[in-house]
Design a protein around this nucleic acid. Structure first.
Lengths: 379, 379
DNA sequence: TGCACTTTGGCAACACCGTTGCCAAAGTGG
DNA sequence: CCACTTTGGCAACGGTGTTGCCAAAGTGCA
């Protein structure tokens, strides 16, 4: 199933996966070896193996294919230059296994994190390893054109510096937007952004395919591909409070790609007014506690919201991050964990793991996977 | 993606879909024509078309296949007896289209709804149309063996009456359970059920494949296959309050198949104590309002919970049902809709549709799809 | 009535992918 | 040095969807 819940899956599932599902056209040319899902799966296993590499037989076992199929697939991938042989394992009484490795230099992508006050652009290779990075101040309030100008300038400078021709640019930014069309919605406090077709404008200005998504989704995607787990939620506590959901290994964006509105979950009926117009939102209560210097209470409120989410979706793992969490990660992990553990004891069943992550880094590095993930069948 | 979030998808996605994913083995024999996903998709389109039937060219268009592929697939399905020709369309200037139709009598399944005080067993044909039905009183408190005895007796009587040999038995029942293993968890108030391997016990006693699931999931599955939408939530308000989630066309059961715990979502921090040990659960507040004769307040609380869910998951549609809702469906639809509409106005974007459904009927008829859905690639 | 035209759908050949059978290559150990 | 193990490529095969071609079955105008 595609990551966005598109109504009728037009082409049959076993037709060649179309790379244009999330990107503009013009990318699939020259990468014909990714035609089948199995090739993408093998490539993903090679990515996961990293610099250590992985043998054909291990690939076969993990992909559920015969060794001969893997030989054929990897032969095509080697012909494309995406994969290379890299030494041998020690023998176990017979011919030693040849180790295969993803060729990181075979491709690259750019990740762009647009935050309210700063821009970060990073160029990475096919394995996601950073090649170069640039930061610049940004003013959302200055309007769309100014932000686009800055973004184009920084990305161009980055590409000039690295000399690579990336597959595309993944853009992560806060606030509601339509992932499928790349159009922004009402960003709270910045009404002039409503309806701005960021994806198409950037794509035209840069001459590259562009994918935009919420920062929380980008972070969740990156964490999923870094191997977090099959099913988890990433809670981002920054200037706002949002969630990125990974369900069944894929980012869940919902019918209108608006999923993840965790912060405006009501946990206090008729509670204090929130900026969104609701009363008793998790975000209002949590951030008010932070502002009042009561982080323990903030963590408890966050935990109650997380417990609601865990009960509803039954995820394996809850990750917390963002500027607020970074101030005292242990405190938030303990606070959320306490609420989840208490509920798990009552409901029965194993407790859900809670961990803190560097939120800004997750967003920054996650943005590039908006472009690269489809190559590995994780689009 | 499979409906349960199983960690690493062992076999490759384009291997023949294994019917045993949800059922015991022994079912796939004799149905070799369902090997590929495309055949299952074509069969599902034929099912959706119902008695009116559908032409090969329409199938090709909707399945994203060439007409010739559909000809081959339907030829195999006709050879298996699952599909038959059924008349012709009016000509549009050439050879008239031959209409194909699912043969309902080509198979059957049994749905079993175990409620706290009553049992309903229904036998249906391949299209889901009821063939026969039986009801019997039931006492969960009498223990597992007595309930199993009753279930076996009723299902046997049903099969004797209809004379069919069903593919299997789908069992829907309240309370937490493990869908993957078919083992019950702590049913609130009935501790002796904890750990009871209902699926395997029933399968052995009946000599048939058995699938068990929560009543809310069964209802959601049935509603999804009846064409509700691609992404919706079914909220069941009965003796408890639970949800069945359909995300991207598939029932979301979560990592440990425990998803859908909607009722014990906290919406009133430090609120009144709930039977689960939490404070301020939607279920406690909602049902207390019902008991106090304040259904408007109950609907508002339900709506707040639904709004939290919609924000988090971005579903298209919210369906409400169950005994409490049946008492005054319009009131609950209006109440939930009011809360969702208010939030949609603030957030922007189109409002979410709210509808009432006959909950008991949805569960009863949904149970059979636990068995039949895999045949149509919707497992 | 007859013939040109349109539309449907089957047959045959083909391309693609993964599988099975077989065997060469490259090690270890007695 | 030889038997044995393990890896992995080559060739043939089976299954599936596609393309090219053509027969079947209608409509509509002369």
């Amino acid at each position: 199933m595609s990551s966005t819940d598109s109504p009728p899956p037009g082409p049959s599932p076993d037709l060649p996966p179309d790379l244009s599902s999330g990107l503009s056209s013009g990318l699939s040319s020259g990468l014909s070896s990714l035609r089948t899902q199995n090739a993408a799966r093998v490539l993903d296993l090679l990515r996961t193996a990293g610099a250590e590499g992985i043998s054909r037989l291990e690939l076969a076992e993990r992909a559920g294919l015969t060794p001969q199929a893997v030989s054929k697939i990897t032969a095509r991938l080697r012909a494309e230059g995406l994969v290379a042989e890299a030494g041998r394992r020690a023998s176990t009484g017979g011919k030693p296994r040849t180790v295969l490795r993803l060729v990181p230099g075979a491709g690259s992508a750019v990740g762009l994190h647009l935050d309210r006050d700063a821009l970060t652009a990073v160029a990475v290779d096919l394995a996601g390893a950073p090649l170069a990075e640039r930061r610049a101040p940004l003013a959302f309030a200055a309007g769309a054109e100014a932000v686009v100008d800055t973004a184009v300038r920084e990305v161009s400078a980055l590409l000039d510096a690295t000399g690579v021709m990336p597959f595309g640019v993944g853009v992560a930014l806060p606030g509601p937007l339509d992932h499928a069309t790349g159009v922004l919605h009402r960003v709270t406090g910045f009404p002039e952004w409503d309806g701005f077709p960021l994806r198409d404008v950037l794509a035209r200005r840069l001459g590259l395919p562009v994918v935009v998504d919420k920062d929380t989704n980008a972070a969740a995607l990156g964490l999923a591909l870094a191997g977090a787990t099959w099913s988890f939620a990433y809670l981002h506590v920054g200037t706002g409070l949002g969630a990125g959901l990974v369900l069944g290994g894929e980012v869940h964006r919902g019918a209108r790609t608006g999923a993840g509105e965790f912060g405006h979950q009501v946990v206090q009926l008729d509670g204090p007014l929130c900026g969104c117009g609701n009363r008793g939102c998790v975000e209002a209560l949590c951030l008010a506690a932070v502002a009042a210097g009561a982080p323990v209470e903030a963590a408890r409120v966050l935990g109650e919201g997380a417990a609601n989410l865990v009960g509803l979706l039954d995820v394996d793992l809850v990750l917390v991050g963002g500027r607020t969490v970074s101030a005292d990660p242990e405190l938030y992990v303990r606070g959320v964990d306490a609420v989840l553990a208490a509920r798990a004891r009552r409901v029965g069943g194993p407790p859900v793991e809670v961990r803190a992550v560097d939120g800004d880094r997750a967003v920054r590095e996650g943005a590039v996977w908006l472009v690269l993930a489809p190559l590995f069948g994780r689009g």
